[in-house]
Amino acid sequence: MGMFAWIALVVAVVAVVAWYLSYTAARLDRLHTKLEGSVSSLDAQLVRRAEVVREVAGSGVLDPASAALLADAASASLDAADVASLHDEVRSDGIGEQRAETESMLTEVLRTTLTSDVIAELRDENAGWPEVIERLRSAGQRVEIARRFHNEAVRDVRRLRHRPQVRYLGLAGHTPLPAPVEFDDRLPDGL
């Protein structure tokens, strides 16, 4: 093989490697963008759920103690949403550990105050209540879906970032490795 053939082969190999690294870096960037979007979506769904819970608490159909518990938990969730700031970069902890605890507490209060017996009784006795229950169920399901979608995006980013070429060549830059968001988001029985 002549010298020209060797040079052409080396140039071709370098071009393929450069293309692959460029493709991998672009894919990683797209995954990080998807992750940012999933955090924003999760944040929006959590706010929506808290607003619906506050509406349920203020509806006047629950006993005063249950209404107060729901209102306090919903207010804490909305306060946590106001405090949380979504950075320009991907947050390594998604919505934050404290906010995740606040959201778990809201879920726990929902399951404690809105038991299946209470929901069935309210559906039967109160006009307009089935629509409110449906909005609450829908908001809870959207939170579950948004959290799952976010955690799937985290898995995709982590899987790509654990590849040797990404780690050794620093294709991820200084972006922190994201962690999944874990909190209790199960709907109360009867919803």
Rank of each mutant, 00 (worst) to 15 (best):
A179T: 12
R186C: 01
E103W: 05
A57H: 07
G96Q: 03
T24E: 13
G60C: 10
Q98G: 09
R54W: 03
R30N: 08
S40V: 10
R91K: 03
R186D: 14
G170F: 03
V17G: 04
N151Q: 06
F149H: 10
M1H: 07
R142G: 08
R147W: 04
D185R: 06
S38I: 02
H87C: 03
R155W: 03
V47F: 04
A153D: 10
L28E: 06
E131F: 10
L9H: 00
S77T: 11
D156R: 15
V10G: 05
G2M: 00
T175F: 02
V13W: 11
D79M: 08
V143T: 03
W19L: 15
A172T: 05
N151E: 06
L106C: 05
L21R: 07
V154K: 02
V11E: 00
A84S: 08
G128A: 09
V56L: 15
R158P: 02
A68H: 07
R147I: 00
V56G: 01
P64H: 12
F183N: 01
M105Q: 14
Q141C: 01
D184L: 08
R30I: 00
A65L: 12
R99Q: 12
V143M: 03
V61Q: 11
M1D: 04
P130V: 05
A127K: 08
E89N: 12
S38R: 11
A8C: 01
L160R: 10
W19G: 15
L187A: 04
D82L: 12
R27L: 11
T112A: 14
E101F: 02
K34N: 13
R163H: 11
P164T: 14
V53Y: 05
S92G: 08
S41W: 05
